[in-house]
């Protein structure tokens, strides 16, 4: 299974990448599994996640081809 991962704002700076492709050997993985694979930052309320541009949480089960985005709380408007 392969997913596209994107990082925004301060998380992009901390991780040092804006996007990447990540592959998993098994057929199932959660957002939490992905976060552990791509980062050594502990998961917290100040890290938001979206899968295919919809807000979700760390327990979300990923599918092949998903676009996953990690970012800090939003500050627009």
């Amino acid at each position: 299974m392969k997913v596209k991962v994107r990082y925004f704002a301060s998380l992009r700076d901390k991780i040092g990448r804006s996007d990447e492709q990540v592959s998993f050997d098994g057929a199932s993985a959660t957002v939490s599994d992905l976060w552990t694979k791509v980062s050594n930052i502990p998961a917290s309320d100040s890290i938001l996640v979206a899968v295919n541009m919809e807000y979700t949480n760390m327990n979300h089960k990923l599918k092949d081809g998903d676009e996953v985005a990690f970012f800090p709380p939003v500050t627009g408007g």
Binding site: S46, Y55, P72, P73, T75, G77
Partner: peptide
């Protein structure tokens, strides 16, 4: 980076 919108810093936690 601005950390949060000052009027309601707790709101981002509730969205997800």
């Amino acid at each position: 980076w601005v950390e949060h919108n000052s009027e309601d810093p707790g709101v981002a936690k509730r969205i997800a």
